[in-house]
Design a protein around this nucleic acid. Structure first.
Lengths: 175, 175
DNA sequence: GGATATCGTTAGCTGCGCTAACGATCTCAC
DNA sequence: GTGAGATCGTTAGCGCAGCTAACGATATCC
């Protein structure tokens, strides 16, 4: 990632505005398409996203999960309740701090997540499949930039963040 | 990136799966961030998106607007009703076909849209501003690819590979 | 004129986002 | 200890968005 180059160049605001609009629109329509596949697994996008964090991020407290998902605790309570009712996650009381509730994925939760993931892969594969190798790399690069941009909007420091979560494994920790 | 050496046209499914998940996740979090700015204008993302189509796409029927937004007519009815109540769009009966309702933007609608757009520009500018010139170009390219991918997922593709587009391995029960 | 199709609306359901308020629990000062 | 305050998760209640089903109004076709 070539960052820290520091070229303080004024880009035409109109260009950035167009980019913002296109990004906004693309995100909306992308989610609408992906949701169709997500529905096939009976999981909505927020639930799937939360489950993904739990599966790959290990057990978390409900508050931590809410923070990770950029959502308020009451919202996460309901999402977790829905996931728990479907037997995809478990609530576990903390033995030391009675206020805390840890959320962990069940085997079924992991299985469902993988199945939904496979469905999206299949859907996206037919769309991404027409991209050639270099386009695929460009898309990957673009997604990474979007992730960085979103992170910087959130106030995170995109550079040097999370010394914990960057093993170049096949993990999808990027939530 | 040392993955997938030697293969020419076959992309490793795991790589595409990661890309799919990252794209999915990035879209979710991007919208969550942008919505904060959109809220400042009192317009939700779906309303803003619909208004944008009306403003830039000229007057269209409610059904056409629903199709453009990939949404069912009842949903669009409510969105338009909300926009109309705020004085941002007008319903206009078709003089020739009594069934049709044309949706057109009001001056206020255009003004509000531009204001919200400016707000997002400002927000995104500070995030995009950290990117240097080449990164900006890469992001732009990535967004374009996302738009293409979404378009091909929607089915408006140039009828290539249509017969083999769906390997019936996993049955996706359409709801 | 009558059957059929299309368009937009209404009714009713589920789910997600929020704030406000509350009980339970932990922490800390005293 | 004990009471004050902070923290955590939940509940209650609001609004919005997505859907299906069903319905009236209109257009079209025979």
């Amino acid at each position: 990632m070539t960052r820290g180059h520091g070229t303080r160049h004024r880009h035409p605001p109109v260009a950035e505005g167009d980019l913002a609009d296109q990004l906004h629109s693309a995100a909306i329509h992308l989610l609408r398409q992906l949701r169709k596949e997500d529905d096939a697994s009976g999981l909505s996008a927020p639930r799937l996203s939360a489950l993904s964090v739990v599966v790959f991020g290990g057990p978390l407290t409900l508050g931590g999960l809410a923070r990770a998902e950029q959502v308020k605790p009451p919202t996460m309570t309901r999402i977790v309740t829905g996931l728990e009712k479907d037997g995809l996650v478990n609530r576990k009381d903390d033995p030391r701090d009675g206020r805390l509730t840890h959320i962990e994925a069940t085997a079924k939760g992991r299985k469902i997540l993988m199945a939904g993931r496979a469905r999206r892969v299949e859907k996206l594969a037919s769309a991404v499949g027409r991209l050639n190798r270099s386009e695929l790399a460009e898309l990957r690069r673009g997604v990474q930039l979007v992730v960085d941009v979103v992170a910087s909007m959130r106030g995170d420091r995109p550079e040097r963040r999370e010394a914990i979560a960057r093993p170049p494994r096949i993990r999808e920790e990027q939530k």
